[in-house]
């Protein structure tokens, strides 16, 4: 096992029409870390995650995820990562159990192992009573838990969470972060994006993106000290102001 979960060097994505969504990104995420990716809307968070998951081909630069090259070894990477997209990716017309079973099987779980794993997951997150409910009729909080269960049924080494708590109530958010810490305690590396600053402060290290480039990186303390601000929220607003000033 290599030491780093994610390494990017000069990673860049230019969309058709010339929009530079991610610009020369150099980033290292350590194994077992809970790493937060912050930035305003359109700053390139989702695009970065998509490149790391092999959904988008980088225009330039290179990246490795759990030790494998994202362009050449994406098949291998896919068996080792979990991804929860901004839209959850659940099948509304399948039940809770069917969604879980489907993703678990696609990730290569079969027979007794699959049955045990599914029961364990459903119990842990309290989905058992809802197993026959259609996913489309779940409330936001339950959808989010189900999506997390689907993304982790195969016990991935690395988990990408793109705004997992958007539109979810505070209690559900707290429960969700509890699950995240449990996963991290078992050695799973986690990359999470969020617009909630209290969530940002729960991350071990943070990266700030603005208009596609990295404008700040470090632990919460390092960042507060570096930018001489009382809270992460102030840092966020200050960094954005500076970056916009630079652009003008």
């Amino acid at each position: 096992m290599t030491a780093e979960a994610v390494v990017t060097e000069g990673l860049q994505k230019v969309f058709q029409g010339g929009l530079v969504a991610v610009d020369h990104l150099d980033l290292t995420i350590h194994r077992g870390e809970v790493f937060g990716l912050l930035g305003p809307n359109g700053s390139g968070k989702t695009t970065t995650i998509r490149m790391l998951c092999g959904l988008l081909t980088p225009t330039a630069g290179r990246a490795t995820v759990v030790g494998h090259d994202v362009e050449r070894e994406s098949e291998l990477i896919r068996t080792k990562i979990g991804y929860m997209s901004q839209r959850y990716g659940l099948y509304d017309d399948l039940t809770v159990y069917e969604n879980l079973r489907f993703y678990a099987t696609v990730y290569g779980l079969h027979g007794r192992l699959r049955a045990e794993r599914l029961e364990k997951h459903m119990d842990e997150i309290g989905l058992s009573p809802l197993r026959t409910q259609l996913a489309g009729t779940l409330s936001g909080g339950w959808k989010q838990r189900l999506a997390l269960a689907c993304a982790t049924a195969h016990e991935p080494e690395m988990l990408f969470l793109d705004e997992p708590t958007a539109g979810v109530d505070p209690a559900a958010r707290r429960a969700f972060w509890k699950s995240i810490y449990e996963l991290a305690a078992h050695g799973t590396t986690i990359l999470v994006t969020t617009h909630y600053m209290d969530e940002a402060e729960r991350c071990q290290r943070l990266a700030f993106l603005s208009r596609g480039h990295l404008i700040g990186l470090g632990t919460v303390q390092e960042i507060l000290a570096q930018f001489k601000q009382p809270t992460i929220e102030d840092v966020f607003i200050e960094l954005q102001r500076r970056d916009e000033g630079a652009a003008a």
């Binding site: 991804y83 990716g89 099948y91 696609v106």
Partner: peptide
């Protein structure tokens, strides 16, 4: 449309 295709592509389904 529902984003499940994106989800499928990151699985090892091929």
């Amino acid at each position: 449309e529902r984003g499940t295709l994106e989800q499928l592509i990151v699985t090892p389904i091929g």
